[in-house]
Design a protein around this nucleic acid. Sequence first.
DNA 1: AACCATGATTGAAT
DNA 2: ATTCAATCATGGTT
Length: 389
Amino acid sequence: MDSMDEQSHIMQSLGGVTLSRALHGGMALAPSLEHESAEEDARKQDIGDILHQIMAITDQSLDEAQAKKHGLNCHRMKPALFSVLCEIKEKTGLSIRGAHDDEPPDPQLMRLDNMLLAEGVSGPDKGGGSAAVAAAAAAAVGGGTDNSIEHSDYRAKLSQIRQIYHTELEKYEQACNEFTTHVMNLLREQSRTRPISPKEIECMVGIIHRKFSSIQMQLKQSTCEAVMILRSRFLDARRKRRNFSKQATEILNEYFYSHLSNPYPTEEAKEELAKKCSITVSQVSNWFGNKRIRYKKNISKFQEEANLYAAKTAVTATQAAAAAVQNSQSSSPATPNHGFQMKDEDFQLDSTDSKANLLTSMFTGKQVLIHYYYYYYYYYYSLFFILKS
DNA sequence: AACCATGATTGAAT
DNA sequence: ATTCAATCATGGTT
């Protein structure tokens, strides 16, 4: 009965006149235009009768209509009329459909996809996925354990989101397929009683897919939002930036000012500093990057600090030196103190051999002079310290 | 609230 | 891959 409604609706919208005209024009039913035989007239009469019956079907009661429908279905003209209907529909359908057949990939959707991919939510992998890979990479770079510990919570939640996302996506896909096949079956069934072109089915499928993809987009959107919230809460370090501990800053500054002529710690040095300061290697790198640039930008601002740390290192150096001297004086064989050795080497590097080194360093000209000045200044300071003790 | 300090991020250069 | 330079966003201070 649904199909019947549709049928009558189509009839109405097309209009009886159009249909009959199409019948004459489109079909080879009319033998020839010249001789309007009685046979011809009879046929016309027949068709007109049918059309009238069809048009009147809506005014009848359900039972009557049903009976009439059956009668029409069995009518000898039915196949002919049906094919005409199909043809007309095809033509009108084409003009309607021509408007929106191109489907530009939604930039919004692409953005969402990219983001999900970047966040490792929609990655091609399973289970641990790219989140684990990223974490592993971070751990490898950071060399630190605190990183992964700090992010384990984040990763857990991310994989949760990921799982939900995938199950939802799958559900939607399944529902989409189910619905599509259902609709197609329905249409196939209906195509026996009303004209349905393959293109129409295709169009229907397209509509269904669009609907479902818009739902998918909503899913993606909300997943993105969730990830963003998660990120801002757990990962975005800027959001919960903590200043390093006093000790850590101390250690870093000590290194920086005692290697002022070449404040570029090697990978190993970074690792050691990281361990000492209980921060990650990348944090050490960040610190040195910031320090270098900020020192260079405004040396005078850091002068005081430089003095302080230079003095500190000098003191420790001289203390070590004193200890070494004491050791050697007390007739024990030369057991050079490690710290002293290091400092000595550093000092020599800075004061003598390293013209080339200095040239290639970030500090040039006047800055080099300043550094020399401070090194010598603290060299004397340390001597003074020895004398006093 | 305004301000500076500081750790992290980003994009370009190398 | 590392560094620089600019920038962001927060932490402390005033």
